[in-house]
Nucleic acid binder design. Sequence first.
DNA 1: CTGAACTCGGACACCACTGTCTGATACCGT
DNA 2: ACGGTATCAGACAGTGGTGTCCGAGTTCAG
Lengths: 207, 207
Amino acid sequence: MASTPNQPATRGRRRRADADRSVASILDAAVDALASDPEASMAEIARRAGVVRATIYVHFPTREALIAAITHRAIAEATEALRAADPAHGEPADALARLLSASWQTLGRYHALVQINSRLGPEHMHAVHQPVLRLVRPLLKRGQASGAFNRDLPTDWMLTVLLELIHAASRDVTTGTLAADTAERALIATVTGAFCTPDQRGEMTTR
Amino acid sequence: MASTPNQPATRGRRRRADADRSVASILDAAVDALASDPEASMAEIARRAGVVRATIYVHFPTREALIAAITHRAIAEATEALRAADPAHGEPADALARLLSASWQTLGRYHALVQINSRLGPEHMHAVHQPVLRLVRPLLKRGQASGAFNRDLPTDWMLTVLLELIHAASRDVTTGTLAADTAERALIATVTGAFCTPDQRGEMTTR
DNA sequence: CTGAACTCGGACACCACTGTCTGATACCGT
DNA sequence: ACGGTATCAGACAGTGGTGTCCGAGTTCAG
């Protein structure tokens, strides 16, 4: 049902280039607007996109559909960033650090989306995150199996911690609470500290 | 200005007992309602409180005032819980664990409040949290000074991590993602792991 | 260049919520 | 039991958002 990131409006026909541009502007504007205010109005999004409100409804039948579209797109982007970090390779602690380093800014852009989608119930949340979890969970399992990560921590909890801290770091950077250049180091140190077993801490390829 | 948790409506007079009851019901209902939906309507809050909508406006001139009141009350409760955990005493790592153990459920109830208040700007957020920070920050500073906590982590970031993980744990418990009896242990293990320096990990009075 | 696709600008009905007000009724303090 | 408080029930205007529609103008594709 939500498999199409944007609706072609007319089904049989091809879509024109300016329509593509509009859709792209709207999607970008929606991410921006919702980031600064999770319940930004359609009018506000249209304004940012440099488009009239009705134009949005040409491509997205409802506000809900628009949010579904940007969520879909965000997940795709996140998945890509995570895959690029190659979580299946190398020492778990190193892989984790690599993954955080490569993806935290990308993922962090969407903390508002998380907030919005989390209002749609946990099962929806879980379903939406499935692709991301598929990539990260094996790494955590692997780390716990090898003894690199703390076996006492439930894997689901570790995933929560991961996502939550990424979003927190991103938020703190945008509000100015945390210096941008310190953020990545702090984030990595915090997460690896939380996950890694004491005896494994020294063995990391730190810096 | 927001120093009165509830407005007496008439200034010179004493307030009647049923009015006290109403105010209490409204406050409780507001916390509940806003926890399940951060933008619950006044009507919904009134319904939960077993009160007519107009009654709310007798005690709180506006929605904003009501939210300010429950925020004030939540902060007071949190401060109390933290103070009871006596953060100034004992080894930093132990004190931290004690503090988490004593307060995570109390604090966790209010994750919706955090979400709501964070929309009012970072400076407002900072001002509101001042009493909490006053209690926790010295412990973190002390731990970093003694070498028990990682000195590379900015103190503000540590505070963020603390609050964020408490709220995450509470949320995961209410959604059923995390078992209630596991949550506290996982939370403490995660936070102490994140903050404590490797050589200090073993020295804790674990269990 | 021409027709089709698209955007614009503005209007529209609809809905949910906020905050105010009323008169009638129940409750509490003394 | 009396008088002042408080609640109730429901109506009210005002506001701001959503989704739909239309006619006129613009831009793209072949």
